[in-house]
């Protein structure tokens, strides 16, 4: 599968994302600079990586959400092709309106950086199918603004539609209903605060994130 990782000024997990994709597909993704206006021909999967795009100015992800490449990313999503945003990438997806809600400053006001136990709430998505019957995983979090917020009506709707994909077992940031990751109605756009690309190698502390990439990229 042909993949692309979008690189913004201040992205810092873009190479980790590329490593994870290459580990599963055997092929390095194309790194696409944010000032491009088109994705490479034939791109089937796009990832928005973690980091601190534009120094988190204004709101996390706000500037990246209006950068030149975003219309092409939106068109990719509107075509029903898979799009994954991790951490800052999740914040960008929220800011572009591709996912509902908002990500606010952590309730503790502290940056959190830890291995986070999660529950897979929906194992029937194209991002989680390879988890099989596994429901409890540990994936690292590292963020200052991961406190998921939405009004009760939106929360009830995404819960009832199976759009809550990951939930914290030990809420690190005050997120509403312990939400760690959500998917859009179409099932092709997922955002999550935990970093699956940092959990793909046993020598680096665990492999619980690998199945996210295996699920989307369809190998192993």
């Amino acid at each position: 599968m042909k993949s692309a990782v979008i690189v913004f000024p201040g992205s810092n997990c873009d190479r980790d994302a590329a490593m994870a994709i290459e580990k599963v597909t055997g092929t390095a993704p194309t790194m696409v600079w944010h000032q491009e206006t088109a994705l490479p021909d034939g791109t089937e999967f796009v990832m928005l990586p973690g980091g601190f795009s534009y120094g988190d100015y204004l709101r996390c992800g706000a500037m990246a959400g209006v950068s030149h490449i975003i219309p092409a990313v939106k068109a990719h999503a509107e075509d029903g092709k898979p799009l994954l945003g991790v951490c800052n990438g999740f914040q960008v997806l929220i800011e572009t309106g591709l996912l509902p809600g908002a990500l606010m400053r952590n309730a503790s006001l502290h940056f959190v950086c830890e291995k986070s136990p999660l529950t897979i709430e929906n194992g029937n998505t194209q991002f989680t199918s390879r988890y099989g019957s596994t429901r409890d995983v540990i994936i690292p979090v590292a963020h200052h603004d991961g406190n998921y917020f939405a009004d009760d009506e939106t929360l009830d709707r995404i819960e009832s539609e199976g759009q809550v994909v990951f939930r914290y077992a030990r809420n690190p940031n005050g997120s509403a209903r312990d939400i760690a990751g959500i998917i859009n109605e179409g099932g092709n756009v997922m955002g999550m605060m935990p970093h699956p690309e940092r959990a793909i190698d046993a020598d680096h502390g665990g492999t619980d994130g690998l199945a996210v990439f295996e699920s989307i990229l369809g190998s192993a």
């Binding site: 204004l58 709101r59 706000a62 209006v66 800011e95 509902p100 809600g101 908002a102 606010m104 917020f149 939405a150």
Partner: peptide, 9 residues
Amino acid sequence: KKLLANPVI
């Protein structure tokens, strides 16, 4: 509406 404020919050 387009950038400076996030209407959700």
